[in-house]
Computed example of a mutant assay.
Amino acid sequence: MEEKHKSRLKAEFSRLLEGRVIHVLDIPDDYKYMDPELVEQVEQSVASLLDLE
């Protein structure tokens, strides 16, 4: 998700997202579904957010 996606979510679902944290991984939307490079980037980004490193 990029900042523009976060903005759209907040605009459309502001009431449901109130008080919730939305993390932007800053991974460009340039990959095909389950691209190994994309999976690796997501795993690394999420691991740091979850303190799995």
Rank of each mutant, 00 (worst) to 15 (best):
residue 1 M to A: 14
residue 4 K to G: 08
residue 45 S to Y: 07
residue 15 R to F: 06
residue 5 H to G: 12
residue 49 L to T: 02
residue 38 L to P: 03
residue 41 Q to A: 10
residue 10 K to N: 12
residue 31 Y to A: 06
residue 20 R to S: 11
residue 9 L to E: 06
residue 26 D to G: 09
residue 52 L to Y: 12
residue 6 K to M: 13
residue 30 D to C: 01
residue 27 I to Q: 02
residue 43 E to H: 12
residue 3 E to D: 14
residue 11 A to T: 12
residue 13 F to L: 14
residue 8 R to V: 11
residue 35 D to R: 02
residue 23 H to G: 00
residue 20 R to F: 07
residue 46 V to F: 00
residue 34 M to A: 08
residue 53 E to I: 11
residue 49 L to Y: 07
residue 52 L to C: 03
residue 39 V to I: 15
residue 45 S to V: 00
residue 12 E to T: 11
residue 50 L to H: 04
residue 12 E to Q: 14
residue 36 P to W: 05
residue 41 Q to F: 04
residue 23 H to T: 02
residue 7 S to A: 15
residue 22 I to G: 05
residue 22 I to L: 14
residue 33 Y to S: 04
residue 25 L to N: 02
residue 35 D to A: 08
residue 53 E to T: 12
residue 35 D to G: 02
residue 34 M to G: 09
residue 13 F to A: 07
residue 4 K to N: 12
residue 48 S to R: 14
residue 7 S to W: 05
residue 41 Q to E: 14
residue 13 F to E: 06
residue 26 D to H: 15
residue 34 M to V: 07
residue 39 V to P: 07
residue 53 E to Q: 14
residue 50 L to P: 01
residue 11 A to F: 04
residue 39 V to C: 10
residue 19 G to I: 07
residue 9 L to M: 14
residue 2 E to V: 11
residue 27 I to E: 02
residue 15 R to C: 07
residue 53 E to P: 15
residue 12 E to I: 13
residue 45 S to L: 00
residue 24 V to K: 04
residue 23 H to C: 05
residue 6 K to Q: 13
residue 13 F to P: 03
residue 48 S to V: 13
residue 10 K to R: 13
residue 41 Q to Y: 05
residue 2 E to R: 06
residue 34 M to T: 10
residue 15 R to I: 12
residue 52 L to E: 10
residue 48 S to G: 02
residue 21 V to G: 03
residue 40 E to R: 14
residue 5 H to C: 04
residue 17 L to S: 08
residue 28 P to V: 02
residue 34 M to F: 12
residue 28 P to I: 00
residue 20 R to V: 00
residue 38 L to S: 07
residue 19 G to T: 09
residue 37 E to R: 10
residue 42 V to F: 06
residue 43 E to G: 05
residue 37 E to Y: 11
residue 49 L to K: 05
residue 12 E to W: 09
residue 2 E to T: 06
residue 27 I to G: 02
residue 12 E to M: 12
residue 33 Y to T: 10
residue 53 E to S: 15
residue 51 D to R: 09
residue 31 Y to V: 01
residue 19 G to M: 04
